[in-house]
Design a protein around this nucleic acid. Structure first.
Length: 889
RNA sequence: AGGCACGUAGCUCAGGGGGAGAGCGCUACCCUGACACGGUAGAAGUCGUUGGUUCAAAUCCAAUCGUGCCUACCA
């Protein structure tokens, strides 16, 4: 790294590791607890401690890193708080699998030893995902890394639980919850994924007692009939108005069931009669409550039938279904089996079919909390970007139901509730009580359930900063500036953080929520292990480098659209990184000393022009990042670097750099070159941090890390970049002339090596002057021998004609002119222009247009018309000339 | 069942009431003293379909078709 010269191709491998270690060593990611600077903070959405880096993380983290690096460059005191969550069910599953491999299980170990085993696992493997985040270049303040099971965060969980309980916002009760038999725990409604599967609708006769006939019910889960405690029909259903009996007999078990009427029943479905199983269906549970029906649990927590199931006791729920259907068939009660597609809930962790089950669980009463969270978005205390997601947010918040927070697993925050063994009094407290406050008994048993992982995640924005202590970190950085996340956890996490943040901090947890898209495979399908279409970000990084990968993500991260990712895309942006690298290589070849002072007085047109463009791209980039339009920022930089800096500026100043125009001009160009690279490195740094840091250290006039530099827009000299308002229109003329000549070269098949003589006619002094002043650039870039600039006069014979703006260019082609080709070319162009003028004429002939359209538009159309006509005339007269010359010859 | 988003060049997409854009791919030519991961030029689109509003619609509205997603207790 001592040489000032760069290698011919950019090789990211060693570079990335070197600079990442450098940044960490120099503590450049560190936030200050107290600072005069403006605070900017982000808490990372904590990845699961069991997780491995996937595309979703990569996108999410890249965006946060862009924001954080950008805000640091703008002088903010930035906190990016990293960490992981303990992922109760997932982690417990992982460790249980490991135990199974060792031929043991958690019950044999016992709770305490099992928890030790989980900690051991986490200490050994828990930092894997963190190290992977580092490979992305994530500039988190790692010294502050948090874990939801840390002591401090656990204290926060406990405090929140106790307070909510005291406020009546947490309660315990027997309700229908979603039960996963495999994970052996309750799940929140959100944690159930519905999937349409092919099932059967069983029509079963429930006969009237004694007499003939009965009521036919239909069900997809016949085994639950064993727990039926009623049959419901709609009160208005005429089919059931005249029934004499008030009960039916439940087949097999021969239990009498009352016939009840309830508005819930859908008359149009099946027979309009519904079997009611309060212990195994959420709706039936509600109906049961309304009508005082008993709740009979027939499936236990292992998915086996209970003694209430009679002779089916002990059977697995699906075995029971088979046996029961057989029994019904044999006894003639099963009338029909109809195939049906229906939605069935599955566990989001293990995909097991969920059983609605009656169970004693802990719940958060969410309505009162949700109200304020809705309000906060309505009054813009928190802004959701893109705005479209606010609708989804409201929709969910308005229909929110109580949140089941207890889980029947061991890994997690054990609920701080104790039951007195003698008087059954329930105590909820911060500390374990030694005696029952009611009866004084010393035997209290702690609730064995733990809390949902999301319960602790909901506190993340303030628990990570030390709450319930009143820390400096909280004072400086809460509320956080923005939360960056995918829409898939808008409800799981964002909504709950909003509720908890507002309730406990009396302020929203974040000012903005930026909701980004999903990363899909190249066919637009969701990546999943089972489909085998996952792209491993680490593979991509190994192959193409982090910078290329990040640039790809940024360019494709358009708001509201998912990203289709493929290696080919990344390859394209590796080319960009390489292009930039080589441009820098070129610049550094010439910048062998510091030229930090801009030499305005000796600047050429391209010098002034590129400075103006630099200012322009700086404005675009800051605007775009400020409004989370990462793709606009990245695209603008791509375009500037490749198509303005490399294509035009570097090419234009080459003669100057080689000293063909004197030392003063060269010094001026070098000062511009250095400034442009200095600034564009900073602009690019948030997107491609490694390569920019690498080049930065070779660029004269820089000191220390690029991370400590000042964003160009905040530099006192920023406005002076636009030192000549005419530089852009003038440069446009030069570029048009060059492009016009190149175009003819191509179309007329003129060898690239042939250097041409041209004559340029224009009646505008300004055009002639601009061209004269910069003729060396045109000569160089268009491959000319000479250029003559004149007022319009006689047309040269044997020439190809180009009309651009206010000038006509003749390419003298004494030997090589091919008249038929030139005729063809001119005719084609004239035809194009005719089309264009036709539509313009139509507009100008339309009286309504002239009457109603705004003046500036009319002016514009008139102008365009005039230009097109003039150009057309010039081309036509040249075409005529060619024809007459051809005849002469 | 309800809601949302998206249909623009071969592919991926940007744009968003007054001149159809980019990248990749493709074609031709070029190893020109940063770069072949490169350069120069070129071809290519009825802006899903049908109506409506407007002087003017790819853009706004309605319907329709297609695609994807989210929410929901239809047994």
């Amino acid at each position: 790294m001592s040489s000032n010269l760069l290698d011919k191709g950019y090789e990211p491998k060693g570079v990335e590791q070197y600079w990442y270690e450098f940044w960490e060593k120099e503590e450049l990611f560190a936030a200050s607890e107290i600072s005069d600077k403006k605070s900017y903070s982000i808490v990372i959405p904590p990845p699961n401690v069991t997780g491995v880096l996937h595309m979703g993380h990569a996108l999410n983290v890249t965006m946060q890193d862009i924001l954080c690096r950008y805000r640091r460059l703008r002088g903010d005191n930035v906190l990016w708080m990293p960490g992981t969550d303990h992922a109760g069910i997932a982690t417990q599953n992982v460790v249980e699998k490991k135990l199974a491999a060792d031929n043991t299980d958690r019950h044999r170990l016992g709770r305490e030893k099992f928890i030790d085993a989980v900690w051991e696992w986490r200490n050994q493997y828990g930092s894997a995902i963190i190290n992977q985040l580092k490979r992305l270049g994530a500039s988190c303040d790692w010294k502050l890394e948090r874990f939801t099971m840390d002591e401090g965060l656990s204290l926060a969980v406990r405090k929140v639980f106790v307070q909510l309980y005291k406020e009546g916002l947490i309660y315990r009760g027997n309700y229908i919850i979603n039960w996963c038999h495999r994970c052996h725990t309750a799940l929140a409604d959100l944690e159930v994924e519905y999937e349409e599967i092919d099932g059967h609708l069983y029509h079963i006769l429930y006969p009237f007692p004694g007499g003939s006939g009965g009521i036919i019910v239909a069900t997809t889960r016949p085994e639950t009939m064993l727990g039926d405690t009623g049959v419901a029909v709609h009160p208005d259903d005429t089919r059931y108005q005249d029934i004499k009996s008030s009960t039916v007999i439940l087949p097999i078990l021969n239990r009498q069931l009352p016939i009840i009427t309830d508005n819930y029943v859908d008359m149009s479905f099946g027979t309009g009669a519904l079997k009611v199983t309060p212990a195994h269906d959420p709706n039936d549970f509600e109906i049961g409550k309304r009508h005082g029906l008993p709740e009979i649990k027939v499936i236990d927590d292992d998915g086996k039938m209970t003694p209430e199931a009679g002779k089916f006791e002990g059977l697995d729920r699906f075995e029971c279904r088979k046996a029961l259907v057989k029994a019904l068939e044999d006894s003639g009660f099963l009338l029909r089996i109809e195939p049906i597609k229906h939605n069935v809930g599955h566990c989001y962790r293990c995909k097991t079919i969920i059983e609605p089950n009656l169970s004693k669980q802990w719940f958060v009463k969410v309505k009162p909390l949700a109200q304020k969270a809705i309000e906060a978005v309505k009054n813009k205390s928190t802004k959701i970007v893109p705005e479209i997601w606010t609708t989804t947010y409201y929709e969910w918040m308005n229909n929110i139901k109580d949140w089941c927070i207890s889980r029947q697993i061991w890994w997690g925050h054990q609920i701080p509730a104790w039951t007195c063994e003698s008087c059954l009094h329930l105590v909820v407290a911060m500390e374990s009580p030694s005696t029952c406050p009611k009866c004084g008994c010393g035997n209290l048993a702690q609730e064995t359930d733990v809390l949902d992982t999301w319960f602790s995640s909901a506190l993340w924005p303030f628990s990570t900063m030390g709450w319930p202590e009143e820390t400096r970190l909280l004072k400086t950085f809460y509320p956080t500036s923005v939360l960056v996340t995918g829409f898939d956890i808008l409800f799981f996490w964002v909504a709950r953080m909003m509720m908890m943040g507002i309730h406990f901090m009396d302020d929203v947890p974040f000012k903005d929520v930026y909701v980004h898209a999903l990363v899909r495979d190249e066919d637009g399908k969701k990546m999943s292990k089972s489909k085998g279409n996952v792209i491993d970000p680490l593979n991509i990084i190994d192959k193409y480098g982090t910078d290329s990968f990040r640039m790809t993500l940024a360019v494709f991260a358009a708001q509201g659209r998912d990203i289709k990712m493929s290696e080919k895309r990344v390859e394209g942006y590796r080319h960009f990184v390489n292009k930039f690298w080589n441009a820098a290589r070129f610049a550094l070849m010439h910048l062998n000393k510091n030229h930090s002072e801009l030499k305005f007085e000796n600047m050429s047109l391209p010098d002034k022009w590129i400075l103006a463009r630099l200012k322009n791209v700086t404005d675009i980039v800051s605007d775009a990042i400020d409004s989370y339009r990462f793709n606009d920022a990245a695209s603008a930089l791509y375009k500037f670097v490749w198509h303005e800096l490399c294509d035009w500026y570097l090419e234009a100043i080459k003669p100057c750099l080689y000293g063909h125009k004197g030392e003063d001009k060269k010094d001026a160009a070098l000062s511009v070159l250095q400034r442009v690279f200095h600034d564009v490195l900073i602009l690019l740094h948030p997107f491609i941090p490694f390569v920019t840091e690498e080049i930065w250290h070779k660029l004269p006039g820089t000191e220390g890390s690029i991370m400590k530099s000042v964003f160009p827009a905040d530099d006192s000299g920023f406005k002076s970049l636009l030192c000549d308002l005419t530089s852009e229109p003038k440069m446009d003329i030069i570029m048009d002339v060059i492009a016009g000549i190149r175009n003819v070269r191509g179309e007329m098949n003129i060898a690239p090596s042939a250097s041409l003589n041209i004559i340029l006619h224009s009646d505008k002094d300004s055009v002639r002057n601009t061209v004269c002043d910069n003729e060396d650039i045109i000569i160089n870039l268009a491959g000319l021998k000479s250029i003559e600039v004149e007022k319009p006069g006689l047309r040269p014979k044997k020439a190809a004609t180009i009309v651009i703006g206010d000038a006509v260019i003749y390419i003298l082609l004494e030997e090589i002119i091919d008249f038929s080709r030139e005729k063809e070319r001119l005719e084609k162009e004239i035809a194009k222009l005719k089309n264009e003028t036709a539509t313009l004429v139509k507009k100008l002939n339309n009286e309504d247009f002239l009457k109603k359209a705004p003046d500036d538009i009319i002016e514009k159309v008139k102008d365009k018309h005039k230009v097109a006509i003039e150009k057309q005339q010039k081309l036509i007269s040249n075409l005529d000339k060619i024809k007459s010359i051809e005849i002469e010859l």
